[in-house]
Structure formats: structure tokens, C-alpha cells
Design a protein around this nucleic acid. Structure first.
Lengths: 233, 233
DNA sequence: TTAAGATATCTTGTTGCCAACCTGCTGAAT
DNA sequence: ATTCAGCAGGTTGGCAACAAGATATCTTAA
């Protein structure tokens, strides 16, 4: 028992095991340093990492405390149901905020997924999903202007993409094979999601296809806070 | 541009964007500190975190360098196919190593999932999945002794659970609803998976049911290194 | 007795210095 | 000319001393 990682193990299992409850005061850095016979810097780094993971918070001059853990929402990842409908089913009050709408420069991956030419115009629309005023996901949709002519002006109002599809004359959609990966938030994403830097984000990438025409309507990228969900697949 | 998080953003996008290639030398701590007008400690912390995320390595007296990124394997998460078969399909050579087999003490969640009594005996069997001698996942199976009588002695040899099912007289299985979450590795898991501390693990939990009898055969917990896969669902 | 101020002490946060390490240069000895 | 020890300068790593904030206690004056 001598390094930072071991200390983090001990502290996390102590917290998760219920030895320390939310807002309980944790041992001071010097106490732990003496107890584990390590320099204070090691304890400090451990506490810092736990802070960034959202398990602990610290007050200068007072001490380190256990952060309240927010409840986790079960989220069904599969199926073609929209995010809004998923949440309604679970009886949560969900607010969607449109946060940006802007033209993007060429990006191979996105343009290829949309099946369009390098010189086409693509708009990026960002929406923030909030639950009880707490942001839980960023939904980024890449839409080609060739399909959605008025996207530049419409884009800022969109909160439900599926509704926008319907109002644009599309009725039945299907999702392409979606890929899942884990990333850490950028500063911008951290600010939107109001989370600390070591909260992994679950990134879901998928395309949306109009069943009738077979055209790719959208390429979407959803970033879920991994600490607010348990995912069911 | 002034804090650790912003620096990490800049460095990660510089690395991912290809400005620095694998094994390239990165700017020294003092250089970056001067350039961004921040104390060296801030640059230091940024580099430390990037090390733990596996993007960077450092050599005392020499400098910090870009870590080679390992290739990502596409992994199909859905379906009832076994891990071994999934990998075979992708033409990878997969080796499974049995790492432990031991009785566990009572745990509400596991015993409930197995549908058994508090006083029943449950064995925990750990297998390590290796690809080109590189560990990529830990597969932990919880098996009740009431179903698998000889598990205490058999347990150390098992590398394929499905094969063991068949040799125990079970033929058709189905999976219960599986849940997905993101965790950080403990020291023990870090050692098995040979990964640094800030590699998130994708944890899949599910039960396995014998179709004929309807009995729960197994509760399994699989820990995938999130940096070695892209998941397809 | 009470209230306000000073003080001591404990906490986390920051900084700067020195150690450990690597590399390349210089210069003397062979 | 060659070799090698020594030195200088740059790198990451570690630590101790200091700063800043919070709180309780003691002191003193009204």
C-alpha cells in the first residue's frame, strides 16, 4: 500500500461501500499521509483525481468531502425511438435547448457517412438535453443543405429532429449501424454538460436514413455523461 | 487559454490531428509553460494526465513523447454469440487465460440475479482475453454450485463458458437484458489488463439463462478496455 | 457578562528549489 | 587521432516551505 492508485482504490471502495456518506468529511491530507506512510503530495494527487472523477469535493481551509452521487437513469440504447420519447416513457421531465447551428468545414468521415460531395454544405446543430435543469447529453446532428434547404434559418429553432424530419416531408426513418466509443470531454463540452474533466462520455455515432428514398438524412453524434446513466442494451 | 484542461485540449487535438506523430518529442514543460504563460506545475499536471490516459509517455532527463496508439477492434455487443466466436469471425487470434477461480461471499446483487438463496455457494471464475499477447478484456463469471456441482475443481480449467455449459448438459441459452456502465480500473484490474489508471473500462453485466429449464446459469461481468475497441450495436 | 479583536492551529492550495537523469561538448591524457 | 573523464545545460521528478482560508480559543476592554 504505497502509491496513488492504491490510495484511490481504498478511498473509492470506502466511499462506495458506505463507510463515508455524502457530505461526510474525509481524513485530511496529512492524516492519510501519516497513516499510509506516503508524502502528502501523493495523498493530494489522489484526492485531486477523485475530485475530477466527481466523487469528492474540497474546500480550502476546511477539508475534503464526499460528493453526493446523482441518481442514474436507465437508458435504452437500442431501437429507433427518439431520445425525447425514451425519456417520456420513463416519466422524466426533459428539456431540450438548442445551443448552436453553424456550417462546418469539410470532414471526410462526416461527408462520407452522409454520402455527399466534398463541396456540399453541411450544418451542425447542437442540442443540450436537460433533466431537472441538469444537462445530461449533447446531441449533435449534421444535416446536408441539399436535403434541408432552409436549415440555415430553421436550425436555431430545432429541438426535435424527428419532428423536423416530418415537417420536411419525411415519414419513416431507420438508423444505420451505430458505433459506440468512450471519450473524455473537451473544455467546451465540459461547460455545456457542467461536468468535471474525468467524467467519461459515451459517444454514439449513427446515421439516419429515410426509408422511402433510401437517402441519408443525418449523421448524428450523441455524447452522454457516463455518470448519469446505466445503459440497457 | 490558461488552465490545465485547456492545455489538455490543445495537446490531445494536436496529437490526434497528426501534428505530433507516435514517438515524436513533445515540447518540454518549461517551453509550454512560457508559451502559454502558466506555471510549469500546470503543464506538468496536463502531461501527467495525458500519460495516465495513455496518449503520452515521459522519460526523466529526456522529455515527453507521443505514445503509439494501438489499433481498435470493432466489437459487436449485441447478440448471443460468445466472445471467442466474435473474435474468430474477425480473424483475430485470441487466447484466453484462466486467472482465478474462487468462492465468493454473499453479495445481494449477484445472488439476486442468479435467483438463489443467501446460503448457496457461488464461484467466481476470471478469464483474461488476450489478443497478440495484449490483454483486452476480463471476463468474470459467477456460477452457482447448485447447478455446476464440480465447479470448484473444474473452474480452474474453464476457458470457454459456453463449452462448459454444453459439457454440463445445457444446450440452448439466452441472455438476460444486459446493462452497460463505465468504470475506472482498480489496481488489480489495471495489472491484469496492463493498462494505465485513466483508461475507462466498459462494464457489461448480464445473466445467462438455460432455455429448456429457464434457470439462470450464470451472472457475468465483462470489463473491456475502452481504448482497444470501437463498439457496434 | 458580553463583544470585538488578536492569536493559534488546522485545513487545502501554490510555488520554487533541488535531485535525478540524459546528452553533448570540451579538453587532457594516451 | 582516439579515448574518456569531467562539466555544463536541459529535461522530468519530488519535496519542503510558504500562502491562503477557516475556525476555535484566548484576551481584553467596555
Amino acid at each position: 500500500m504505497c502509491d496513488k492508485a492504491a490510495l484511490i482504490d481504498v478511498l473509492t471502495s470506502a466511499i462506495h461501500g458506505g463507510l463515508y456518506k455524502p457530505n461526510d468529511k474525509l481524513p485530511s491530507e496529512n492524516e492519510l499521509a501519516d497513516q499510509f506512510k506516503v508524502p502528502r503530495m501523493v495523498v493530494r494527487k489522489a484526492y485531486e483525481q477523485l475530485q475530477e472523477q466527481g466523487l469528492v469535493y474540497a474546500r480550502q481551509g476546511k477539508g475534503s468531502y464526499v460528493q453526493e452521487s446523482k441518481l442514474r437513469i436507465p437508458l435504452i440504447l437500442t431501437g429507433d425511438v427518439s431520445f425525447t420519447e425514451k425519456m417520456k416513457e420513463l416519466q422524466y421531465e426533459l428539456i431540450t435547448k438548442n445551443v448552436f447551428c453553424e456550417e462546418i468545414s469539410y470532414n471526410q468521415k462526416i461527408f462520407q457517412a452522409l454520402g455527399i460531395d466534398k463541396h456540399d454544405v453541411v450544418y451542425k446543430i447542437g442540442r443540450l438535453r436537460m433533466l431537472d435543469n441538469c444537462p445530461i447529453a449533447i446531441h449533435i446532428s449534421y444535416l446536408p443543405q441539399s436535403i434541408f434547404r432552409e436549415i440555415e434559418t430553421d436550425g436555431h429553432q430545432i429541438t426535435s429532429i424527428f419532428q423536423y424530419y416530418r415537417s420536411s416531408g419525411f415519414e419513416k426513418f431507420t438508423s444505420t449501424e451505430s458505433s459506440l466509443s468512450i471519450i473524455f470531454p473537451s473544455v467546451y463540452e465540459r461547460n455545456l454538460l457542467n461536468c468535471s474533466s474525468l467524467i467519461p462520455l459515451l459517444q454514439l455515432e449513427a446515421g439516419c436514413i429515410d426509408v422511402k428514398s433510401g437517402k441519408v438524412l443525418e449523421y448524428s453524434r450523441i455524447l452522454y455523461r457516463s455518470d448519469r446513466f446505466t445503459y440497457v442494451i
